[in-house]
Structure formats: C-alpha cells, structure tokens
C-alpha cells in the first residue's frame, strides 16, 4: 500500500502534466512516467507478467513508436494554447469532472469488501496460470489477436507506403535536364557555390559572399533555409572592414608582398 500512496500522486501529477505541457515530447515522457508507475502497481497487485509486459510493450515499444513519430513530425513544434473551438475547454473540463465525480460516487456507494487475493490462482506461478487461462478459455480470442496484429501491420505498411507515380530519374536524365535548362533560360550549369568559408566563420549555415560583397543565397543548403536556422552573412560593413584591414598592409608593401597576400583574400572573397 505504501507503493500506491507514493506512486498515485506522481501518476496523477504526470497525467495532468500530459494535459498541460505544450511540447509533445514532454507529454510523451510524462506518459512514460505514468506507465512505469502503473507497471509497479501491477507488481503490487500480484500481476508480475503484466508488470513485465507493461514495461516491455508499453513503455518500450509503444512509447518508442510515439517518440519516433514525434521525431518525424518535428520535435520542436509546440501546440498553441489558444482554444479555437468556443467553449470546448470549459465544457470538456466540466463534463470530464462530472464523469470523474460520477465514477467516484459509484465506487463510493459500492462496498468491495475484502479482496480474495490471487494466492490460489498464482500458486503454480503467475505466468503458468495466465497461460492456462489464455490457451484454454481465451484461445479463440488469442488467435483472433494474431489476425488483428497482422492486419494492423499490413495496414500500417499500406498507409505509410508512397506510390511512385513516375519512373525514377537517372543521372543521365538529370544532366540532360540541367543542360536543357541552361539552354532555355541560362540556368547555372555547374554545382552550387560552396557555403561561406571565412577566417571568422566557416559554417554550412552561412552564405558565401559574392565578389561585390553581397551574400549568395544559393550557397546555403535549402533545408537550412526552410528551417529558418541559417545565419546571416557577415554585414557588408564588416566585409569593408576586412577589405580595409587587408588593404592596409597591401598599400604599404605593394611591391614585395603582393604575391603572398592576395591568394587568401581571393579565396575568402569567392
């Protein structure tokens, strides 16, 4: 009973957390807390097999699946807290509260009496006892779950499958298309420019600068632009400073150091 009184507040708090946290990942982690606590309660309630299954199947497999999908969908996306359906939140709380209240009333007016306990049923071991019930009285239902799982697996495959509607493009096709685009509208034929590599900055998320100092947008990978995580190119003024700094020594030693100084400047500018 101690385990219950320790775990019950934690579970209720975690469940309420699922309601209130804004990020889905946090909700998933809180749910995992509830499930593991539940597993412990199963152990308390003389159900060691379900204790294991709860941890392995629920916490291990199902919650992992949830997290997996969350990663696919985007971990960062957090819910807006603004309720769009008028009255939905109030009504939900009122009806849900009423529901809980009614269930509590039902339980309160029913006297369970002393529990029988599973001493006799678990005499030969809990797993053996379960197996006997499962493979005798519930064998048909058990077979049906096999069909259900296979159907679910097939269904998930069908749903997740994406049909290819056009033949796969070969490298030759792509090359041909690129040349055709060049001929039609003068599109850049070569590879995209590399991202910026500076003395101060050397990162894929920073655009390269063109000779006139403007950032070249095409030098940054599209996914970074889409995520909005790209950095801004160094300010124009900054470049001027760099050029000025570079030009200083160059003015002094125009004759002797010209050959040594220019290559790095050229390489950075491009």
């Amino acid at each position: 009973m101690i385990a219950f009184w320790v775990l019950a507040p934690i579970m209720v708090a975690a469940a309420l957390g699922v309601l209130f946290v804004r990020k889905a990942v946090h909700a998933a982690l809180l749910l995992a807390v509830v499930m593991i606590s539940l597993a412990v309660l199963y152990a308390v309630l003389e159900a060691p097999f379900l204790f294991a299954v709860q941890i392995i199947v629920y916490t291990g497999a199902i919650m992992m699946l949830f997290l997996f999908v969350l990663m696919l969908v985007g971990v960062d996306a957090s819910d807006s807290v603004v309720e769009t359906i008028r009255g939905q939140r109030v009504l939900a709380v009122v009806v849900g509260g009423t529901f809980a209240l009614l269930l509590g009333l039902l339980l309160g007016q029913a006297s369970l009496g002393a529990a029988s306990g599973l001493g006799d049923a678990n005499a030969g071991g809990n797993i053996e006892g379960l197996a006997q019930v499962l493979f005798s009285r519930y064998v048909l239902a058990f077979e049906a779950t096999a069909a259900l799982l296979i159907t679910a697996a097939l269904g998930a495959m069908v749903l997740a499958h994406r049909e290819r509607l056009t033949p796969r493009e070969s490298q030759a096709d792509r090359a041909r298309a690129r040349v055709r685009a060049y001929g039609a509208e003068g599109a850049h034929l070569g590879p995209e420019p590399a991202p910026g590599v500076y003395a101060r900055h050397n990162a894929v998320d920073t655009p390269a600068l063109l000779p006139d100092g403007t950032p070249a947008a095409s030098s940054v990978p599209g996914i970074i632009v889409a995520r909005g995580t790209g950095r801004r190119a160094p300010a124009y003024r900054d470049v001027e400073d760099v050029v000025g700094t570079l030009a200083g020594p160059r003015a002094d030693a125009t004759e002797e150091t010209h050959a040594e100084d220019t290559p790095p400047a050229d390489g950075r500018g491009a």
Partner: peptide, 8 residues
C-alpha cells in the same frame, strides 16, 4: 482480478 481471485 485481484479482488475476485482469478486471472481473467
């Protein structure tokens, strides 16, 4: 299950 003493 615990209350009724069987594994159903």
């Amino acid at each position: 299950a615990k209350q009724h003493g069987n594994l159903d």
